[in-house]
Amino acid sequence: MNLSVHAKSPTVVVVDYGMGNLRSAQKGLEKAGVKAVITSDPAAVQSADAVVLPGVGAFQDCMANLAEAGLVAPVMGAIEQGKPFLGICLGMQLLMTISEEFGVHRGLDIIPGRVVRFDPDTRLKVPHMGWNRVHYSGDSRLFEGIEDGSFFYFVHSYYVAPEDGSVVCGWTDYGERFCSAIARDNLFATQFHPEKSHNHGLKVLQNFGRIVSECS
């Protein structure tokens, strides 16, 4: 008989709404020591201790799929309850009020702000695709143990412009200076893909995992 008492390990869900490579996000979390389950079940998201919202593709499709799957309320609920949340790429952009991708579309409006396209006048290639530096500002819990200005993997044509600059915890230069990471209480989001950013990315996921265990 095993008499040792195990603390129940927190449940981290990776929200599956039909967009993108979820397997890498799950495996990246696993590699960083965070057990995560992929789910499209609203009830599972509702009862989770922490939520990871990945996403690639078009903003409008992502919002539509999220709504169709009945996942908007559970995701919003998790954030409102202060559960640790990590939005990745489009999962970050969805937090904004509106997006200007292919017309104007409403987002979740959790962080007041807009999603805008890189200025074509910079004559730089769009999508912004590849490894770029993230410089930290403000809340640096997500980047603990990673040198300032380290490289992370990006692939996107739009970026977030939050109204309140104090939520920006990382910024990146690509012809213009844009917000590449957000932190507000237990809400985190990155424009880059930590699950594709080698050791630095895995460290970000590990840091998120630590925040999750501290909260659980």
Partner: peptide
């Protein structure tokens, strides 16, 4: 946002 330089690494 404010102007910035291009820090994107070239890829191999």
């Amino acid at each position: 946002m404010s102007p910035g330089k291009d820090e994107l690494a070239r890829r191999i």
